[in-house]
Design a binder for these strands. Structure first.
Length: 511
RNA sequence: GGGCCGUUAGCUCAAUGGUAGAGCAGUAGGCUUUUAACCUAUUGGUUGAAGGUUCGAGUCCUUCACGGCCCA
C-alpha cells in the first residue's frame, strides 16, 4: 500500500484507444526526441485570418504572389485524408482554427507517411505559405510539418463536442480545447479584472495584498475554514474578507487602497456560491458612502462601455436587458419593504414582533434571537431583492446587520450603507466606515454574544483591530464588489461555475 | 439540508422487463482542393457502485457515489 492515500492510484481507465496512441508514442521514442521543444512560431491563426481573411482582396493569385512563409503551432482538431493529400484543422494559441493543406509531394521525404499515423489532439508545428482553397477558405500550404506533442487521450467528438457538465468542470483543459465560448468567457473575465485595476490605479488607489491566513476571522459574517500551522502548532482561519486589514492600512496612512483577491467561506455550494471566490475591496479615506455610490457608478459606466461587444451600456443577462448607462435608481431598505408589504407601515419597522408576524405570514424563515434589523433584511431579501433587475442602490441598512458601518447621524439604528443590486443579486456592498473605537468594541461584543447564542456566522472580537482604531482611523468609506458575480452578469453566465476555471467539485470516486 | 432529474462504447445519444445498438472517433484498405469529406470492411460494453424483486433487469425496488436544476 502506498503511504500517501491522497496521491492518485495508477491509471485504471487505460482503454484501447489510449493504448494504441501509447504504442505510437513508444515508436516515436525509438526515432529520436519524442517531445521536441525547438520549433518556434512566427505567426498565429487569429492574426492571419484577420489580415488575409478578405477573400476578394486576398484571392488565390494575390496570396501566391505574397509568398511569405509562416510557422504556426497548434493542436489537430480534425483531419480529412484523401490519399496523397490531406486537409487538417489546427487550433493554436490564439484560439482560432486554421486549415492546413498537406500534399505528400510538397513535404520532405517521409513526413506525409508519418503524418498519417498522427492523431486528432496531437500538437504539430507547420511551416508553409498562405493559399485559398477552391471553396475559398484561407489555408496554409505546408512545406514542412513536425509532431511537437503526442496526445494519448482522444478528444471528444468533433460535432457534438463535450457537453457533460461534470466532465467540463473537472477536465476544464478539455472544455477549453473543444468549446471556444469557454475560452471567450475567461478572456473576458481577464479583461474585466484588468479594467477594474486600471480604473482604481487611475483614481490614485494603491493595490495591496493582505493576509489570507487569519488568527481571528473577521470582516464579514460567515463561517470560516480552519487550517493548521504545523511548526507553530496553531489553528488558522482562511480569511472570509480582507476588510479589517485594509482598514488597518487606513490607520497607517495608506488612505486609498484596494485588493482583488480570494475569500473563503465555509458554506453551501450552488450556482451562486463557490467556497473560494474573488472579491474586490477598496477603502477611501475622507469619503463617505455617497462618494462611493458616485465612484461605483462611474466604474460601472466605464467598465461596461469599454467591454467588447457592448453598445449603449446595455447587456443581456439570461433574457433580461440590463442598462448600465446613466444614473442608477436609489431606494432605502425601509421604503422598499413598506412598498412591497402592504401590511407594514413606517411605524412598524422597529417592531420585531410585527415583523416576525409578517415573516410567518409569508413563510419567511426567522429565528428567535433576531432583532427587527435582521428581520427587516429577511423581508427585503425574500420579497424585494429578486425583483430589482436594473442596477439599483439600496441604502440605509439596519445597524444590527452592519457591525462595521458608521451610524446614520439622523437615525443611529441605521447605517450609512448601500448595496448595489443588479439582476436580483447583490453585486456590491459599501458603507461609511465606523472609526469610533468604543462603538466598534461594543459591536464586536454584540457579535460575540450572538456567537455564544449559537450564530456560527457571527464575528469574533478583534482586539488588535480595536487597538488600531484607537490610534485613529481617518473618516472613510469602503466597498466590496463580488468579481465572480459581476463576471457572470457580463458574460451572461447562469452559474458561478461557468466563470471559475476550476469550480469546486467533490472528489471523483476512486475505483 | 430538502425536492426533482440524470449517470449506457473515448465523445454524443438510442434501446415495451426478453439477443445492449447508432453516429462520430479508432483500426485496415482506396482516394493529390476537402471541410460534419467520401467509398469498402471492421474493432470496441463490469449499462456509476452495491444489494433486492423476477424464469429473465440498462429498464422495477432499496441504499450509496457523483453531477445538474430548483428550494432553504
Amino acid at each position: 500500500m502506498t503511504h500517501n492515500e491522497q496521491n492518485q492510484t495508477p491509471e485504471v481507465d487505460e482503454n484501447r484507444l489510449i493504448a494504441e496512441r501509447r504504442e505510437k508514442l513508444h515508436a516515436l521514442r525509438g526515432q529520436g526526441e519524442a517531445f521536441p521543444n525547438d520549433f518556434r512560431v512566427t505567426a498565429d491563426a487569429a492574426t492571419l485570418l484577420e489580415r488575409f481573411g478578405d477573400a476578394e482582396r486576398w484571392d488565390q493569385e494575390t496570396l501566391e504572389s505574397h509568398d511569405e512563409q509562416y510557422r504556426l503551432a497548434g493542436r489537430i482538431l480534425s483531419r480529412r485524408i484523401m490519399g496523397k493529400a490531406s486537409f487538417v484543422h489546427i487550433q493554436d494559441s490564439s484560439g482560432a482554427r486554421i486549415q492546413l493543406y498537406l500534399r505528400r509531394d510538397d513535404l520532405p521525404e517521409g513526413v506525409y507517411q508519418a503524418f498519417k499515423q498522427w492523431d486528432i489532439g496531437d500538437i504539430v508545428g507547420v511551416t508553409g505559405t498562405l493559399m485559398r482553397t477552391r471553396t475559398g477558405e484561407l489555408s496554409i500550404q505546408a512545406s514542412d510539418l513536425k509532431l511537437l506533442t503526442k496526445s494519448l487521450r482522444p478528444l471528444p467528438e468533433k460535432w457534438h463536442g463535450l457537453s457533460d457538465q461534470e466532465t467540463r468542470y473537472r477536465q476544464r483543459y478539455v472544455d477549453l480545447i473543444v468549446n471556444p465560448e469557454v475560452r471567450d468567457t475567461f478572456v473576458r473575465r481577464s479583461l474585466i479584472i484588468r479594467a477594474i485595476r486600471h480604473f482604481f490605479d487611475d483614481q490614485g488607489f494603491l493595490e495591496v495584498e493582505t493576509p489570507m491566513m487569519h488568527h481571528i476571522p473577521g470582516g464579514a459574517t460567515a463561517r470560516p475554514f480552519v487550517t493548521h500551522h504545523n511548526a507553530l502548532d496553531l489553528d488558522l482561519y482562511l480569511r472570509v474578507a480582507p476588510e479589517l486589514h485594509l482598514k488597518r492600512l487606513l490607520v497607517g496612512g495608506l488612505e486609498k487602497v484596494y485588493e482583488i483577491n480570494r475569500n473563503f467561506r465555509n458554506e453551501g455550494v450552488s450556482t451562486r456560491h463557490n467556497p473560494e471566490f474573488t472579491m474586490l475591496e477598496f477603502y477611501w479615506a475622507h469619503a463617505d458612502y455617497n462618494d462611493l455610490i458616485r465612484l461605483t457608478q462611474s466604474l460601472f459606466n466605464q467598465l461596461i462601455d469599454d467591454l467588447p461587444g457592448v453598445s449603449g451600456g446595455r447587456v443581456e443577462y439570461q433574457g433580461e436587458i440590463i442598462d448600465f448607462s446613466g444614473d442608477y435608481d436609489r431606494i432605502e431598505v425601509v421604503d422598499a419593504v413598506i412598498e412591497h408589504y402592504d401590511e407594514l407601515s413606517r411605524e412598524d419597522i422597529k417592531d420585531a414582533d410585527k415583523l416576525r408576524a409578517v415573516c410567518r405570514k409569508h413563510d419567511i424563515h426567522a429565528e428567535d434571537g433576531w432583532g427587527w434589523g435582521r428581520l427587516l433584511m429577511e423581508l427585503f431579501e425574500a420579497g424585494v431583492e429578486r425583483r430589482l433587475i436594473q442596477p439599483t442602490f439600496v441604502t440605509q441598512y439596519p445597524i444590527e446587520v452592519s457591525p462595521l458601518s458608521r451610524r446614520n447621524e439622523k437615525d443611529p439604528d441605521f447605517a450609512d450603507r448601500f448595496e448595489l443590486i443588479i439582476a436580483g443579486r447583490e453585486i456590491a456592498n459599501g458603507f461609511s466606515e465606523l472609526n469610533d473605537p468604543e462603538d466598534q468594541a461594543e459591536r464586536f461584543q454584540a457579535q460575540v454574544e450572538a456567537r455564544d447564542a449559537g450564530d456560527a456566522e457571527a464575528m469574533h472580537f478583534d482586539q488588535d483591530y480595536i487597538r488600531a482604531l484607537e490610534y485613529g482611523m481617518p473618516p472613510a468609506a469602503g466597498e466590496g464588489i463580488g468579481i465572480d458575480r459581476l463576471v457572470m452578469l457580463l458574460t451572461d453566465s447562469a452559474s458561478i461555475r461557468d466563470v471559475l476555471l476550476f469550480p469546486y467539485l467533490r472528489p471523483e470516486a476512486t475505483e
